[in-house]
Structure formats: C-alpha cells, structure tokens
C-alpha cells in the first residue's frame, strides 16, 4: 500500500509529501502504519500517540481528507467509505494533493492549527480556547457530606458532552475555525455547555455569557462537521443550538461574527 505523508521541517520551514510503500496486514490501523514507516523506513517521522485505543486524544490527523484518530482508523476501512464527501468543505479539504483516493492513503496534520513538525500540530490555541470557557465546576454552595444527587437521565445528558477527549478533530474539521482563528470552536463550546447543564453547577446561565460574543455561540454556522468527525459521538452542534435558544430566552440578541472587527 502506498502511503503519502505530509512532512514539515521546522528548521527549513519547508513542507513536502513523502511516499512510503508498506505491507498492510488485516487489522492494521493508520497509527500502526505510521509506526511501521518510522521503525523501518524513516526514523525522523514525527507524530503524537499514547493509548492506541481511541481514548487519549493524541493522534487526531487528516487521513484521506477526514480528521480522525489514527489509532482508530483501520487502513482497510479507508476504501469504500466516502465520508469526506459528506463534510462541508474547508481549505484543508480543498487543498490539492498528489494522491489517488481509491488506492492510496494520504496522511496530513490536523488542519486549522500551526504545524510544528510533520504530523505534530501546536495545540496551544485549542487549549487556550478551552481555558476561555473556564472549564471547572463552580458549585452554588458547599458540597454535601456525600455525593450531590443526580438522576440517571441527567447523567445521560451530561455524558453526551463529558465523553469529549479533547483530540481537536472537530476543531480541525470546522470551516468556521478555518476562517476565523479566534472562534472558540466546537470542543470548547461543548465543554462550556456541559458545565451549563450540570445540576451541581451554581453559575449555569452566567456561564453561557462567557461565549455570548462573536467568537462564541454566534460564530457557528451549523455545518456539523464537528459531529460527523467526533470519534466519541459528541454533538457540539446540539449544544450550540440549545445554548443559543437559552440565550434568546434570556433576552440576548444574536451577535453576528461578521459585524465584529
């Protein structure tokens, strides 16, 4: 199988597309393939990894033009599932590459973040945006002696969002993040909404105001790429829609991102 891997050399600040041919036994993931390339063909290839089981969020990258976790992506499954065509296009999707989608694997760094080396991106902006939403519980009063009571239904609703592993696949897939660098992005907004929903939280509505701005709730254009690429099934688009509805009920007006300077 022919793998085409986007390389970036931070010293010379140059990019190139490298080709590697490797065997792809049944069950091989793209992460396995990258290790095989690194171990047998080019020890200088860089990419992040840790759990290899789709829970740690290290290895989100653009694989055949779809942001995915390399560890969760079976090489064989890349062919015959045209997921890319369902995504709303953004620059990274449209960037031409010398690549045959039916027979080759194209691996590029996660879009919408600066590349540091090869497939390693700088996550600073992603986590800066995460910090903006003040992601830590702010309970209304001192905690009870035991647990706060919570119903299984409340847990089920929260779990939709606590399942996020902060891999940034959604951030890399979002056409708005592509155009607007200060847009908080799907993961940060989903995180904010998770704290808004939390029955233990004391500042539910005030929290929503943290993103009541042109970089927050109102920047989303509901392309739903975020939900489609999420490896954990998190629906940021639903959180954003519900947050906007709540803000409207609180008498807040939409803030158009195009109006702000």
């Amino acid at each position: 199988m022919l793998f085409k891997v986007q390389r970036y050399d931070p010293e010379t600040k140059t990019s190139r597309l490298d080709s590697f041919v490797i065997g792809t036994p049944e069950g091989m993931t793209v992460l396995d393939a990258l290790f095989r390339i690194q171990e047998q063909l080019d020890p200088s290839l860089s990419f992040r990894y840790s759990c290899r089981g789709a829970v740690c969020g290290s290895c989100a990258m653009l694989i055949n033009k779809v942001p995915r976790l390399a560890c969760r992506t079976q090489v064989a499954a890349l062919f015959g599932t045209p997921t890319a065509s369902r995504l709303k296009p953004w620059r990274a999707l449209e960037a031409r590459a010398d690549w045959r989608p039916r027979t080759e694997v194209l691996v590029e760094p996660l879009p919408n973040l600066p590349v540091l080396k090869d497939l390693v991106v700088d996550m600073t902006r992603f986590f800066d945006h995460w910090r903006v939403v003040e992601p830590a519980l702010k309970p209304a009063q001192d905690p009870p002696d035991k647990e706060y009571p919570m119903t299984p239904a409340q847990v089920a609703e929260l779990e939709l969002y606590t399942n996020c592993i902060l891999c940034a696949a959604c951030f890399g897939a979002c056409p708005v993040n592509d155009q607007q660098a200060d847009y908080l992005g799907p993961a940060a907004l989903a995180k904010l909404y998770r704290f808004f929903l939390d029955p233990r939280e004391g500042e539910n509505d005030p929290r929503l105001l943290l993103a009541h701005n042109p970089e927050g709730w109102w920047a989303c254009q509901f392309h739903t790429n975020c939900r489609q690429v999420c490896p954990r099934g998190v629906p940021p688009n639903i959180a954003i829609g519900q947050a906007r509805a709540r803000l409207r009920r609180l008498g807040k007006k939409p803030l158009d991102s195009l109006d702000h300077d």
């Binding site: 519980l137 905690p143 706060y148 919570m150 929260l158």
Partner: peptide
Amino acid sequence: YELEHRGTVFSRFEDGR
C-alpha cells in the same frame, strides 16, 4: 466524593446516589 464534588460525572442509581 471529592472528585464528585469537583465535577466528575459518575453513573447513578435511580435514587440519585
């Protein structure tokens, strides 16, 4: 309880515990 108070979402019994 400490982690629960800090925000960890644990699965619950019907009685909320």
